Amino acid sequence: MSLEAIEKVTQVENEVRERRAAAEAEAKQIIADAEKEGQALLQRQRSAGAEAGRELLRQAEERAAAAAKKTAQAAEADAAKLRETAEKHLDAAAEFIVGRVVKH
């Protein structure tokens, strides 16, 4: 083999090594970038999940407050009706009691 052919083979081998090293470095960079993007996406999803959880809790609290208010209003209305009914029968109850006391 001539000196020129040996130099050419050596040059090609060096180029191949350089290309391989560059390809490996690029692959490592792609992997590092993908991991970085994956971690960022994971963090965004966790944040979004936490925010969604807070929003669901807020909505549940609103519904519970509305239900409690409605229940309190219904209880107030029932109490008013019972008071009204009791007041209507107050005179009759007083007469009944007086009548029982006087007879005995």
Rank of each mutant, 00 (worst) to 15 (best):
Q29D: 12
S47I: 03
A40V: 01
Q29T: 14
E37I: 01
E51I: 08
A66M: 08
A67G: 06
Q39F: 01
E37Y: 04
R44K: 14
A66V: 09
R54S: 06
E37W: 00
R54A: 10
A68F: 07
A66C: 02
E37R: 11
Q29I: 07
A68K: 10
A68S: 13
Q59D: 04
A50M: 05
A60Q: 14
Q29A: 15
E61Y: 05
L57Q: 15
E35K: 00
E61N: 14
E61Q: 15
E61G: 06
A48E: 14
L42N: 10
Q73K: 10
R54D: 09
A34I: 04
K70N: 05
K69Y: 07
G38K: 07
D33R: 05
E61S: 09
I31D: 11
R44L: 13
A66P: 01
L57C: 07
K70G: 06
L42A: 15
G38N: 07
L57Y: 08
T71W: 09
A32I: 02
A67R: 12
A64Y: 06
Q45R: 12
R44A: 12
K36S: 09
K36R: 15
L56F: 08
A68W: 03
L57H: 10
Q45I: 04
K69C: 06
D33C: 00
D33W: 00
E55G: 00
L42I: 02
D33K: 03
Q43V: 03
L42P: 00
E37C: 00
A68E: 15
L57D: 11
Q29L: 12
K36A: 13
I30K: 10
A32T: 12
G49P: 05
A48V: 01
A67E: 15
S47M: 08
R44S: 13
A34G: 03
K36V: 02
L57A: 14
G38A: 13
L57N: 11
A64C: 07
L41D: 04
Q73E: 15
L57P: 00
A72N: 08
A34C: 04
A68R: 12
E51R: 11
L56V: 06
S47C: 01
Q73A: 15
A66R: 12
K69D: 13
E62Y: 01
E35N: 04
E55S: 06
R44N: 11
R63I: 01
G38L: 09
G53Q: 12
Q29V: 08
Q73F: 07
I30A: 14
E55K: 11
E35T: 01
A32N: 05
G53K: 06
Q43T: 09
A65Y: 05
I31T: 13
E35C: 01
A72W: 04
Q59Y: 01
A65H: 10
A64H: 10
A40M: 02
L41E: 13
A60R: 14
R46F: 10
Q59G: 01
E37N: 10
A50P: 00
R54Q: 12
S47H: 07
L42W: 03
A68P: 05
I31R: 00
